[in-house]
C-alpha cells in the first residue's frame, strides 16, 4: 500500500516579491477528498497560493508538508497553468511527455495518450502541433496532460478564464469525472457560477490572505464575512 500524499498542510506560509508580501501568512489544510475552489478577485493571491502549494514558489516563511517526502510528492501532483504551456511538439507528444519522463515505454505511452486525447476530444488532432490549437483545445490538452499520470491532486489556475461557455463546460465535465474517480482537485477561479457548480470546499481570498475557508454549501448559504457576502450578492469586490 503506497502512502497517500494527502493531506497537505501549509502553515505560516509567506511569499514575497521584491520584499513585498504578496501572500500570507497562510494556514491551510487540503484533505484527502473534495474539490476545492479558490475564489477571489484579481490580484487576491490565488495564483501565488496554488503555485506555493505545488512548490513553484519559494516561501519566505512557513512550510508545506506532504505525507511523503517532497521529491516523491511532486511527481504525484499535476498543475494546469492559467495560460497553457504547450511543448512545441505534436498533441500526441505533449501527452506522452510526462509518461516518458517517468520512464514509460513509448508504445505504452502512445496508447495511453490516444485514450486521453479521445476523452478530451482531441483524437483527430493527434499529429497537429500543440501550439497551433485554439485556446480551449490547448487548455483541454494541458488538463489531459496533467491527468494522464494519474496524480493524486491537481491544481488548476483559472483554466477557463479565457474560454467560451462550451469549452468551459467541457473542461468542467473532465474535471468532475477526474474528481469522481478520486483525484483531489484545487482550482482557482473568479467566476462565482463556476464555484457554485463545482465546489465542495471554498477558500475565499482577498489581498493575499485567506478570508474564509470551509464547506461550499455553508459558504454560499451563509458567508461569514462581509466581503464574501458582498461578492455573493454580485457587488464588485477588490
Amino acid at each position: 500500500m503506497v502512502t497517500p500524499v494527502l493531506p497537505l498542510t501549509m502553515s505560516g506560509a509567506v511569499v514575497k516579491r521584491r520584499s513585498k508580501i504578496v501572500l500570507g501568512p497562510v494556514d491551510l489544510t487540503i484533505g484527502g477528498q473534495g474539490l476545492t475552489i479558490v475564489l477571489g478577485p484579481n490580484g487576491a493571491g490565488k495564483t501565488t497560493l496554488l503555485r506555493a502549494l505545488h512548490g513553484l514558489e519559494r516561501l519566505a516563511q512557513g512550510d508545506t508538508v506532504w505525507q511523503v517526502p517532497l521529491d516523491q510528492a511532486r511527481a504525484r501532483q499535476g498543475f494546469v497553468f492559467q495560460s497553457p504551456i504547450m511543448l512545441r511538439r505534436s498533441v500526441l507528444d505533449n501527452l506522452t511527455y510526462p509518461l516518458r519522463l517517468n520512464g514509460m515505454a513509448k508504445p505504452e505511452a502512445a496508447q495511453m495518450a490516444r485514450g486521453w486525447a479521445a476523452r478530451v476530444g482531441l483524437d483527430r488532432a493527434l499529429e497537429q502541433p500543440a501550439p497551433q490549437l485554439s485556446g480551449g483545445e490547448q487548455q483541454k490538452l494541458a488538463l489531459a496532460r496533467a491527468l494522464i499520470t494519474a496524480p493524486e491532486i491537481v491544481f488548476l489556475d483559472e483554466p477557463c478564464a479565457s474560454l467560451d461557455g462550451r469549452a468551459t463546460r467541457e473542461i468542467e465535465t473532465i474535471l468532475l469525472a477526474a474528481h469522481a474517480s478520486g483525484t483531489r482537485i484545487v482550482m482557482a477561479t473568479h467566476d462565482i457560477g463556476q464555484a457554485k457548480r463545482l465546489a465542495t470546499e471554498v477558500v475565499f481570498m482577498m489581498r493575499g490572505a485567506i478570508v474564509e475557508n470551509g464547506p461550499a454549501a455553508a459558504f454560499f448559504a451563509s458567508p461569514k464575512t462581509p466581503q464574501a457576502a458582498a461578492l455573493l450578492r454580485g457587488d464588485i469586490v477588490e
Binding site: H54, L56, D71, R74, A75, Q77, G78, F79, F81, I85, L87, Y97, P98, L101
Partner: peptide
Amino acid sequence: DLLISMSA
C-alpha cells in the same frame, strides 16, 4: 514552470 512542475 511546466518542466519544474513535472519534476523533470
